[in-house]
Amino acid sequence: MPDDRDARRADRDAAGPGPDARDAAARAADHAGIDRLAATLVPALIAKLGTLNVGELEVHEGDWRVRLRRPAGASATYGRRVTDRPSRTHPGHEQHGHAPGTPEPHRSSRALPGPGHGASASAAASNGSGPAGATSPGLAPVGPGRGGEPVTSSGVGEGGHGPGPSDPNADAAAQIATSPAVGVFQPGPKSVAGTRVRAGDRLGVVDMLGVPQEVVAPVDGIVVGVIVDAGTAVEYGQELVHLQPAVATEGR
């Protein structure tokens, strides 16, 4: 990333006295390049890296370069919130810093009582075993310069339960059903650990001022467990239900 920015700055400096000196054609070409990257290349790369057992992919297109890299110990960047801090009002927050798919024992024991508990815990443990675990790639895009902007532009305006425009962990988040609204979470029958679900199935609702907003499964798979207790206040985009994707399950 820094090298890209340096390159852009050098580009500007070379072009003239200020950042405005770049001519319109160069800008238009840049915009077209970014659009192309956002629309086709980035999603394809994310999918590719998710299936490969490598740490990094890099592709050059025109003047732009896209590099996708698994963070060392993919779990570190899994929690979405850079700005997270302990909060009295977000009792569901504290788990965000944890490894993917390793719910806190006390939380999972409350959320997943009964026979489903052991199974889900072991599934979770294998899931979070390390950066090479193909089921939790924890991708973070690096470069070109503007961080996640291409991803952002393609993510806006889509369904309320996507990984979120600025979420670099697009693939990782696909295993988590997130909150479509700010409100109070009520898990449904299909959120019980071990339940086989299809993408789009209703896992529960978030009650926003008395209007239930559906929490849906982002992928086909098996429910590992709920991350947040019933009746908890949740924010938009908060991780609610953990899923083991069907493809990965069959691959094992």
């Binding site: 979405r80 919130r81 850079v82 700005t83 909060s87 009295r88 009002t89 977000h90 952002t152 806006v156 305006g157 309320g160 979120g164 425009p165 600025s166 609204a181 700010v182 924010e235 938009y236 985009g237 908060q238």
Partner: peptide, 18 residues
């Protein structure tokens, strides 16, 4: 999410998409 008011706040809550 990464804005200064969110970082400086005692509490912050995400209410929706961009």
């Amino acid at each position: 999410r990464d804005s200064l008011p969110v970082q400086l706040a005692d509490e912050a809550i995400c209410i929706g998409p961009a």
